[in-house]
């Protein structure tokens, strides 16, 4: 079955339950007037409109880059594609196996050992005993964890956590790969190895959706770009066309300070 993503009129709103108090509500509404993304919904609740009427379709072979400024809705869109956030309106349809590399901790339990976390991940993908063993071995070797693999993740250095998360997430090859940009970072010695593995995974996937501030990555990896602004699709088209327009207003700053907060 060919992989496919269909998104039609997708809207997502975040409820702000803790901003219910009258005065706070008014302040926030006033402050957000410029953005017009804080709205009251039908039940007079304060909501942030994270995505508004997003529509696109991706077929097998497409490599989509999501660009836009902080808070434009890139991560929310990835989460919606991953099925974590369910829309308030519209339609999301994913065909094909899916792996989402969303946040660095990837739902890891810090108290569990690396091996136990890998076991849980294997079970999530409905693997059986031998499959999980192969997965664990692959992750242990690739992440260069050595004996730490059987110790709680809590005592790992931050670099080790990133390596474990990366190895675990990239050990399973999906048809549809959703990736947030933190995956492109990592400690220097690990980065080349990681890039190689990631590139083989990206080549192996039928569809890639990548959210990033790194313009050169978008240009080299993607075939199509969607530029999000204030939760709406501002531009959708071939890489060169959209990226030229985007970096025209981007002042070049994102390339200098890519948002690869991994601390």
């Amino acid at each position: 079955m060919a992989a496919r993503i269909e998104v039609q009129d997708l809207s997502i709103q975040f409820p702000l339950y803790h901003g219910q108090s009258r005065s706070l509500k008014r302040t926030m509404l006033a402050r957000a007037k410029g953005l017009r993304r804080l709205q009251e919904n039908s039940q007079h609740r304060l909501v942030v409109e994270a995505l508004r009427n997003v529509t696109f379709t991706l077929g097998a072979g497409e490599r989509l880059g999501l660009v836009g400024h902080n808070g434009a809705g890139k991560t929310t869109l990835l989460r919606a594609l991953a099925g974590v956030y369910e829309p308030v309106a519209g339609r999301v349809r994913i065909e094909g196996t899916l792996n989402a590399l969303l946040d660095p901790n990837q739902g890891m339990n810090m108290e569990l050992t690396g091996r136990e976390n890998v076991t849980l991940r294997g079970r999530y993908h409905r693997m059986n005993g031998p499959g999980i063993e192969a997965l664990a071995e692959d992750v242990r070797v690739f992440a260069e964890l050595g004996d730490f693999f059987d110790l709680p993740v809590r005592i790992y250095s931050s670099g080790m956590i990133v390596r474990l998360a990366f190895a675990m997430a990239t050990a399973i090859r999906p048809q549809v790969l959703l990736m947030d940009e933190w995956f492109l970072a990592g400690d220097a010695s690990f980065r080349n190895k990681a890039r190689e593995r990631l590139e083989s995974m990206v080549r192996g996937a039928d569809i890639l959706v990548l959210s990033t501030h790194l313009n050169d990555v978008v240009r080299s990896w993607c075939s199509r770009v969607i530029w999000l602004e204030d939760g709406r699709v501002k531009a959708d088209g071939p890489v060169d066309q959209v990226m030229d327009a985007f970096s025209g207003i981007g002042e070049g700053v994102p390339a200098l300070f890519p948002e690869t907060a991994l601390s």
Partner: peptide, 25 residues
């Protein structure tokens, strides 16, 4: 889904193959 160290492994039969959330109506 395949484990990379064994690229020949067949996709697991029970693995989830996507989902649809349709709220147009």
């Amino acid at each position: 889904m395949n484990v990379i160290s064994d690229p020949q492994a067949a996709p697991l039969p029970e693995a989830e193959r996507g989902f649809t959330i349709d709220l147009r109506h």
